[in-house]
């Protein structure tokens, strides 16, 4: 039994050697097709990055400040600041600004052109 198994191993190995020695090689046409595919994929990739540049930069900025939650907080804070500027609540007028100079001049300092125009209209 053992001798038979050894002979089987030896016999099969002869077949395997024959298979290795006669490996079917790729045709020249296949090699040309594979290389053409490679070059086409490379060429397509060279063109692609230009469109993606700005998106990548925005993504990097977003990640740098902490992702979408941080972006939402930033936008909310910006809008709140804008609203306070456009329509300041009455309570802001009661703030003790005397320490920074005259109350009126402090506001004039923020929007000098507008304040002067309003004064001119009142006096005029």
């Amino acid at each position: 039994m053992m001798a038979g198994t050894d002979r089987n191993e030896t016999g099969l190995e002869t077949f395997f050697e024959s298979a290795r020695a006669t490996a079917p090689g790729p045709s020249g046409d296949l090699m040309a097709r594979v290389l053409a595919d490679a070059e086409a994929v490379q060429a397509a990739r060279v063109k692609a990055p230009a469109r993606r540049g700005p998106r990548v930069r925005f993504a990097q900025l977003r990640e740098a400040i902490g992702g979408w939650p941080a972006m939402a907080g930033l936008v909310s804070a910006g809008l709140a600041g804008l609203w306070l500027g456009v329509s300041p609540p009455a309570a802001l007028n009661d703030l003790p600004l005397a320490g920074f100079g005259a109350g009126e001049s402090a506001l004039v300092g923020m929007l000098p052109g507008v304040e002067l125009d309003l004064l001119a209209l009142e006096e005029g």
Binding site: A19, P26, L30, M31, V34, L35, A38, E39, Q42, R45
Partner: peptide, 27 residues
């Protein structure tokens, strides 16, 4: 190198890999 656009790497990989891939598929 291929991914970085190197044409020589494309040829080298083609010559190195295609015969093995072809032989395995045939078997």
């Amino acid at each position: 190198l291929f991914a970085n656009g190197d044409g020589t790497a494309a040829r080298a990989l083609t010559l190195r890999m295609t015969p093995r891939v072809m032989a395995h598929a045939y078997r």
